[in-house]
Design a binder for these strands. Sequence first.
DNA 1: CCAAATTTGTAGCCGAGGCTACATTTCGCA
DNA 2: TGCGAAATGTAGCCTCGGCTACAAATTTGG
Lengths: 144, 144
Amino acid sequence: MSETDPTQIKGFNRARERAARALLEDYVEMISDLAAEFGEARITEIAARLGVAHPTATKAVSRLKREGLAVSRPYRGVFLTEAGEALAESVRARHRTVVALLLAIGVPEEVAELDAEGIEHHVSRRTLEAFEAYLARSERGEKG
Amino acid sequence: MSETDPTQIKGFNRARERAARALLEDYVEMISDLAAEFGEARITEIAARLGVAHPTATKAVSRLKREGLAVSRPYRGVFLTEAGEALAESVRARHRTVVALLLAIGVPEEVAELDAEGIEHHVSRRTLEAFEAYLARSERGEKG
DNA sequence: CCAAATTTGTAGCCGAGGCTACATTTCGCA
DNA sequence: TGCGAAATGTAGCCTCGGCTACAAATTTGG
């Protein structure tokens, strides 16, 4: 054994980190959406929209606070920090790009939205750039 | 909306199931690769290639056995069942398609391989079909 | 053929992300 | 104004996927 082609090592820590980050991203995006809609994000509403029990949302928000992405006071709404808002916006932008790419490829609309939710968290900066470039080319009429 | 509504999607289990399935898929694929290469897959080798400690691989293999995807005897190699082999092959095929799609879009090769590993687990059947159709069109020269 | 090295198994810990049950605070309204 | 309903917090439990440490089995080679 032991030679273990360095190229083949998958580094599962990356998988876990990704999963954790994906969760944070989903919460941040949801909080941002709720802030836009209601002026603040309540734990109960966050939990309801993400389909989890409220203590689960509470724990996640604790993590967001620990990471400096959100702030909140007991029995009050949750608010994003500047870092949180920035993350939310980049997540939203990436989501739009991924959906647009899938649609351009020919993925049915309903499916595109659903799959994008899972896919977007694994799209690296460079891949995102490639997506954007492709979409720009498509829009210039070089095929669709 | 805070009451326990049984008809409502019971939680974020979808995300967890996805993550769990992604892990199983990675292990199954790796075991299949090792079987092809060495005739059998040893725990130590599986762990090394996936970049985890061996007890982690042992636990994962236990899960595979529980799910009927693999069999093994103490201090011996791990082997896939028919179901496991079938899963491995479909995973491999999907991986190839995702990488091909990314390359066709213009994603750099190194990035395509890396991102595909994360993306592939979130590509649904219908999206995969769309990818294949797109690739078929590209190959027929309709511009890509 | 036996001892050392390697491989595998097992025990037990951790944190994440779920859950339920119950306590507490805030809010709405009669 | 006060009380009940709704929202939030807290405690405690589960599984999963990591880990380390140590025990047991197997393989290797002198």
